[in-house]
Design a binder for these strands. Structure first.
Lengths: 325, 325
DNA sequence: AATTTTACCGCAAACGATTGCGGTAATGTT
DNA sequence: AACATTACCGCAATCGTTTGCGGTAAAATT
């Protein structure tokens, strides 16, 4: 049994295709008896409407594109999970593509998305201007584009980001509130925009009230090494800007067999998974890919529904208390 | 500028749609001059063929479906990344759906996939027979189904799995080789096929040579609790069947401030990420989602190309030495 | 009995791309 | 000059679904 179509049903029942179509959609023109017969046969024949035909006719694909540098990243895949969840709920499908930060692949991906007439696109982009232009072309073709996380630094586009400054501020205030006096603060690569934002906000919130040692790590391994070095100066708290850094720091803590939180306090900005892997669980400020996804999806829906207003949003980070501080 | 079609080009150039179509496909019937004019205009108008129209006509969607319980899982998203990579390379798109282990959603997903006339389906299924039937219906509709990871326990379907037995055997042999004498072995839900396979192979390899306590945990939390309980009996080694269990076990280890590997040895079957988060890094037998993805994709392609031969494959696991044993 | 209303249902065009078949003009062949 | 060949190109049907419009019978109204 290959694929049942309206025509199959219509010929079996000796009625027209239009009648079958209307019967299945509960159109008032069709008698109950006919509706009954049609829907029964449709069931036994496992009829499913051909989405391609519908999309062709309506010129709407009900498919959203989603482009990320790579799926294998906790932040992105929680984002993806979130968007997928909402999409399904709203009868949309998701076409997921990864660029691998390769401009050529990125262009191919865009072509594919256009061929599939996606109804909208979620994109986290490697910051090359040439690519951005290509994305903006989609907007001209009336395909809404929601940039998230890694967004282009130009106005007039929809941007949904985590609240970097707010997350750093919240972390700093939590540290102050706990009466900590000497913080080892480990940030990421100092050239990254995200690092700059978080560092500035963090220092501003600390406001010289307590002693802070700032270092920069660009990998879990270097975070581990830097933590080990600086443990010699007996900080009472370590702040980690990201999950990757937290992972490195925790290895150093374990290596030195330090008791958390008695020997040392830990607080991090995190997506929420890594902190649950330790005992006690790490206190963290959540920058949830999941929430970001919800936000991005809402933004997308309002675009799809015709809003021409540009969204420039950030998620509100939340403190999740573990037992590490 | 909305959407350019063949008709747009044909009317602008004053030629027929068929000619435009053939020109773009470099058909020999069309003169070079015409081809030139057509492709130039197509470029400036940013023409992209409408995938829906093509799929409708050819009755082939060139879209693969991919169903997993949840994306937010290191194993699955490395699998997804792998399959996406290959799909793109072979001009296929990927429609990813998560079931959340909810049978109802699973049925809705299947419906969606059928509506979209996917060319094939990768599925990891929660083991309910009713659902499996639905999947098998796809096969009847000539849609190849590749089950991976969590596969149904029935013959006559394509199954790509990690080498469960081999991984368990390798773990057991490693434990024996390290001269351990008392193992706490934590397995997953005892109804799952994967648990049965790993347990059987593990016990067979141990062959009564040393003392093994077997327990079953169905979450990280229960693994933690079970580990805590059984630490009272002073095992010299803990074997964890999966990453989730490993995470729970490590929290118990940390809670009791045990030194690894001096106080206790740890070995796990893992996808490779979690073990690197601890110091010392956990020795594990790798079951790579990435490799599994490549294998599954190859299997899919041979099905798509018409092979009716059933694939029942397993990946070869590898021991990765950390410092935990 | 003639007319209007109601209840059902079918025709045909449209969405965009592909392709077998047929057609016309220009060129080549005898 | 008559015919055959070549080089180009268009017509129309098709994939599956939707929908405006029109049509025909039966039922209701006068």
């Amino acid at each position: 049994m290959s694929n049942t179509t309206l025509k199959t049903i219509s010929t079996v029942l000796g009625i027209s295709i239009s009648t079958v179509s209307r019967a299945l959609k509960n159109h008032p023109d069709i008698s109950n008896k006919t509706k009954q017969r049609v829907s029964e046969l449709a069931n036994t024949l496992d009829y499913e409407p051909n989405a391609n035909a519908i999309h062709l006719r309506t010129n709407k694909s009900n498919v959203f594109g989603l482009v990320v540098p790579g799926i294998s990243n906790y932040f992105y895949h929680s984002f993806i999970a979130s968007v997928e969840e909402e999409s399904r709920r709203q009868q949309f499908s998701l076409m997921i593509l990864q660029s691998g930060d390769d401009p050529e692949i990125e262009m191919l991906n865009l072509k594919l998305l256009r061929q599939n007439r996606v109804s909208g696109l979620f994109a986290s982009v490697s910051n090359s201007n040439k690519q951005i232009d290509a994305y903006l072309k989609l907007k001209e073709a009336d395909i809404p584009v929601i940039f998230f996380d890694k967004v282009p630094d130009i106005p007039g586009c929809n941007r949904i980001c985590v609240g970097d400054a707010e997350a750093a501020r919240l972390s700093a205030n939590t540290i102050l509130q706990k009466n900590k006096k000497h913080v080892l603060a480990i940030f990421g690569d100092e050239n990254l925009l995200i690092t700059k934002k978080r560092l500035a906000a963090f220092m501003q919130a600390i406001d010289g009230k307590i002693n802070v040692t700032v270092v920069h790590a660009n990998s879990a391994a270097s975070a581990e090494a830097l933590t080990l070095e600086n443990l010699l100066f007996k900080p009472d708290t370590v702040f980690c800007m990201s999950d990757e850094i937290l992972a490195g720091t925790m290895k150093a803590i374990q290596r030195n067999s330090l008791k958390v939180p008695d020997d040392i306090g830990i607080i991090a900005i995190s997506n929420g998974f890594i902190p649950t892997l330790y005992h006690p669980e790490i206190t963290f400020v959540e920058t949830s890919g999941y929430k970001l996804g919800k936000l991005a999806f809402n933004s997308m829906m309002s675009c799809v529904k015709g809003s021409t207003f540009f969204h420039d949003l950030t998620t509100q980070p939340v403190l999740v208390e573990g037992g590490s501080l």
